[in-house]
Amino acid sequence: MITTAFPRTIPMRIRPALAPASVVAALVATAMALVWAPTDAVQGDVQRVMYVHVPSAWLAYLAFLVVFVASVGWLWSKRPVFDAIAVASAEIGVLFTGLTLIAGSIWAKPTWGVWWTWEPRLLTTAVMFVMYVGYLLLRSLSLDLERRATRSAVAGIVAVVNVPIVHLSVTWMNALHQLPSVLRPGGPALDDRMLATLIVGVVAFTILYAWMLAARVDLERARQDRVLGSLLLKRAAGA
């Protein structure tokens, strides 16, 4: 039997739920961060910035790892969907790396006394931000769809080297930035309610990422279709 219905895969089934799930998760995470989580005995309320800062940083890592995987996918298969995923994820990654740096600065001023300090974690994060801004710049200056995707894929693979450097910089070098509090040997060094709030924050940001990624991939795919359509029309007119 011939069917014209598009197979409804799991990602397609859960997609409509991403937007409401993201809003609900964001509201729950905000309430937990501002009301339910206890005030830090040493840092006071400024510690609550962590509930934005850490999930943002996690999302930046995730986004850039997705850029890497999608870049490999493009070079391997030349399927345009991989290029669409790469650009979508890179844009979200840059946005959330910027948010990580801003939230970190807001926390640093009352805690360290400065908005910015030349510390390995801050420096490597700023370098990662610039690196992916360069990636987006490279994309924006290339006009041909396939060449742009190939160039960007190579840049996306090279840039991912910085992700583990950022994460491990605090353990490799003498750093002012605190060592990992959750993913550390011996278990998390956080109050249970703080840890639960942080986990809910990470989940909320991840759902937000999935929603933003799906929407941006749709836009990019529509743009790719337009470009390919106009190319086909030009070829047909030429023939």
């Binding site: 420096l123 690196m131 360069g134 490279l138 840049a155 090279v158």
Partner: peptide, 13 residues
């Protein structure tokens, strides 16, 4: 303009 933007961050280490 693009080469320094791409190369400098990668060459920090």
């Amino acid at each position: 303009a693009l080469v320094p933007v791409l190369a400098l961050p990668v060459l920090v280490p």
